[in-house]
Amino acid sequence: MPNIPQLPVSSWIDKLVDWLASFEGFFNGVTNFIGGIINGFQWVFDLLPIWLFMILVVGGTYWLNRKTKHWGLIAFEIVGLLYIWNQGFWRDMTQTLTLVLTSSLIALVIGVPLGIWMGKSKVFETINKPVLDFMQTMPAFVYLIPAVAFFGIGMVPGVIASVIFAMPPTIRMTDLGIRQVPADLIEAADSYGSTSWQKLFKVQLPLAKSTLMAGVNQSMMLSLSMVVIASMIGAMGLGNKVYFAVGRNDAGGGFAAGLAIVILAIILDRITQAINRSKIPKS
């Protein structure tokens, strides 16, 4: 195609970013808001003594699995958390946890309503599906660049980039969960004169809950995978340790911190799965 000039895609996007960056007030507001959530989480984690944190995690796991008694998991949690403490990664771990919890929370708050909307509207679903594909397949690094332009450096742009990358599973699974509710239950709800809201909160959401929670679990895991990337724009935590280790070609330090991320991932995954486990007995 020698005669067709190269499309100036990159300069268009630069212009768009520049134009968006002019809404400084809005982005400052968002930054402050997310910063507030992050500080809140961090404040709690800093306040908690390590032993109390461990008791809460282990006790919580025991209570959530009280019927099945996963002693192996509980032992793993104790050993894993002791390892993190022993390696001097405790504060880094809580920072990473803050990043993951904040972005999961935002993904949940934004993703679930969007998923419900998709579940109820064929049109919105058709429009949104390629957008979600885009969000998930665009290399996560790319989000960092405009995120810095809008939100500066630090935890906040890390959270934003994580949310964009990690939100699609929550949206998709909420959509799927809503659509999976059997047609005769919807008919039953309608035939007794439920309003749309009653149908949503009494029938659709409760029945979509386990699918929805599987999406939240996936979002959480994805945002955890963002911690190293987010550390490139100044997000603190375990990712930062790994990132530094890469810079210094320090294999030992990298694995030591990487292992801590794995431990955190497994604990988060098992706890969210246990929350999700159905309380309704199977026939």
Partner: peptide, 17 residues
Amino acid sequence: RRNKMSMVFQNFALFPN
């Protein structure tokens, strides 16, 4: 729908939750 008629379904359509 709320006051005049009620429906019973072939596959029961009970809410499992």
